[in-house]
Design a protein around this nucleic acid. Structure first.
Length: 530
RNA sequence: GAGGGCGUAGCUCAGUCGGUAGAGCAACGGCCUUUUAAGCCGUGGGUCCUGGGUUCGAGUCCCAGCGCCCUCACCA
């Protein structure tokens, strides 16, 4: 047991002997720190002045992040999720205003006859209120939550300050916060105790606020375009819609093996069969694969489907969602990521898969012999895991595409005309059935999204499900799903579908180098193995 | 999975050639009515990730393990 924790527990007890409950309840009528600052500026307060008019009176609450005790004068910097603000307590001022210092009323959490939380002055006279408030302020530690009623003023050094007339503690932190200047920098600690990271590092907190705003923005765009948000199964008897190893689990009552979804695709398209013409889902997906700065075992994908549309409509929506989010949430279409500037200004270039291949690999993808030779070489140098001797042509070619082409796609780029064999859920190009009506969108060398003109011919679907590409070692989209084919037999309207990796998008838009920096609680091995 | 790096006080970090474990912040005691990472005086605080080994002696060297990070591979 650390000494600091014992010290703080001792203060907890002293607060209770003063009649103050250190874990308070409801506290209403708070003005946020950002709003206090705005109001303070508006009042044109002179240096050294404390204002008395009603507009200068306010209530604040927050976590104490700095504490400066000057004897008969205490300054605290409190932090809420809008920013920081200074509160000041003057022993003399509290005494002079004893009639208002009678403590802060705290309503009980429940109205069901529960006793009101003790306030600083309960059972005491006004004088006691001031004295108790002062004693409470002296017992404050960094990290405590406090509540203040006061008047806005400006100190001699010009700092906007809420001068306390009433003061109370709202929650005692018995563990000390990280160092006030550096915050919490240890990466492992930041992930394991994200709650500390969030309050100690405002930049971290802002990433998650922006993540939420990006998703809000996208919901707004989709709502305007007539989409509805749906929830489809995470637990699936057959996994599909992507190529990935799944997590497996078991339902006891049904005595049935289930998979955590690797994609929501096949269920969302069933919605279209049912006549829900525009649907989307922010789908948590699970893939039992490696962890890297760009891969987390669970991640969030926005997936959407639009009846009567095609993949060109999906390009339009992709630009609207991503460029719009950048503009709306980040305030710019040019973001810096990994030392490079990425320009999200639409329209984004469309590039053919075959052209990009020829440019960056150095020979046309029709030269299968050369592709195999190159892949063999990379495999032997352990730069590629695909063994061309065990893989079909398209798999070999795509491995080279990923290796050579993707790193070059820095600015947002739509890659089109994918080999149909790689796309078992995609409609074929009527002009050339070897190509699929699909695009993938890349930025900063990362795949950000994937879209199709959806395959709605049940017979073709049945065939592609039956054909398993070699070289994918069980990670194939072509898992036969009879129930899904049956759904198609009822009629899937022509449709465009799109998936966007939300975590990666948030990385790009917030300049976060690792996917773990945009996931609140990334998976970690247990800290204590004992 | 392979390679590399890191792990020391609550936090941020030093620790030389192998010789009794250090600083700042935080904490504790004291002073202070205008501080801004407040200041000044004083004090306490360690499973040096874990377990072995080498050595008279290990935070330091060696081995194994654990955790985290990075690179590569994987991830259509």
């Amino acid at each position: 047991m650390s000494d600091q924790i014992s010290d703080r527990r001792a203060k907890l007890a002293r607060l209770r002997t003063l009649g103050v409950e250190p874990y308070g309840g409801r506290f209403t009528g708070i003005t946020s720190n950002a709003a206090l600052r705005a109001r303070g500026e508006q009042l044109n307060i002179e240096v050294g002045q404390v204002r008395e008019e009603p507009a200068a009176q306010a209530r604040a609450a927050g976590r104490v992040v700095l504490y400066r005790d000057i004897g008969s004068l205490i300054f605290m910097t409190i932090r809420d999720w809008t920013g920081e603000f200074q509160i000041g307590l003057s022993k003399k001022m509290l005494g002079d205003r004893a009639e208002v210092t009678a403590g802060l009323e705290q309503r009980p959490v429940r109205a069901t006859g529960a006793e009101a939380t003790a306030s600083a002055a309960d059972g005491g006279g006004a004088d006691d209120g001031a004295a108790v408030a002062w004693k409470v302020a002296k017992l404050i530690d960094l990290g405590d939550f406090v509540g203040v009623d006061g008047r806005l003023g400006r100190t001699k050094t010009g700092e906007l300050t809420l001068w306390a007339d009433r003061f109370t503690i709202l929650s005692k932190a018995v563990r000390p916060p990280p160092e006030k200047w550096h915050g919490l920098t240890d990466v492992e600690a930041r992930y394991r105790r994200r709650y500390v990271d969030l309050f100690a590092n405002p930049a971290s907190r802002d990433v998650f606020i922006r993540r939420a705003r990006i998703m809000d923005y996208m919901r707004g765009v989709l709502r305007e375009r007539g989409f509805i948000e749906v929830d489809t199964p995470v637990l699936q008897p057959i996994y599909g819609g992507a190529a990935a190893r799944p997590f497996q689990t078991h339902h006891n009552t049904l005595d049935m093996d289930l998979f955590l979804r690797i994609s929501p695709e096949l269920y969302l398209k069933r919605c279209l069969v049912g006549g829900l013409e525009r649907v989307y889902e922010f789908a948590r997906c699970f893939r039992n694969e490696g962890i890297s700065p760009r891969h987390n075992p669970e991640f969030t994908m926005l997936e959407l489907y639009q009846a009567y549309g095609d993949y060109h409509d999906m390009m339009d929506i992709t630009e609207a969602l991503i460029a719009g989010a950048a503009r709306d949430v980040i305030g710019t279409l040019q973001v810096t990521f990994g030392g490079r500037t990425i320009d999200f200004t639409p329209p984004w270039p469309r590039r053919r898969y075959a052209d990009l291949f020829a440019t960056h690999v150095g020979f046309p993808l029709t030269d299968v012999a050369q592709a195999r030779a190159r892949a063999r070489q990379l495999f032997e140098q352990k730069h590629l895991s695909v063994d061309e001797r065990k893989a079909d042509d398209e798999v070999v070619i795509n491995a080279l595409f990923e290796h050579y082409v993707e790193p070059h796609l820095v600015n947002p780029t739509f890659v089109v005309d994918y080999p149909a064999a790689l796309c078992p859920l995609t409609r074929r190009d009527p002009a050339d059935p070897s190509r699929a009506l699909r695009f993938e969108v890349f930025a900063s060398g990362m795949e950000l999204g994937n879209a199709y003109s959806e395959l709605n011919d049940p017979q073709v679907q049945h065939e592609t499900f039956s054909r398993q590409l070699r070289g994918e070692e069980g990670e194939t989209m072509a898992v036969m799903d009879e129930d899904y084919v049956e759904a198609l037999e009822y009629g899937l309207p022509p449709a465009g579908g799109l998936g966007i990796g939300i975590d990666r998008l948030v990385m790009l838009l917030t300049g976060s180098g690792s996917i773990r920096d945009v996931i609140l609680f990334p998976l970690q091995r247990p800290e204590r193995t004992t």
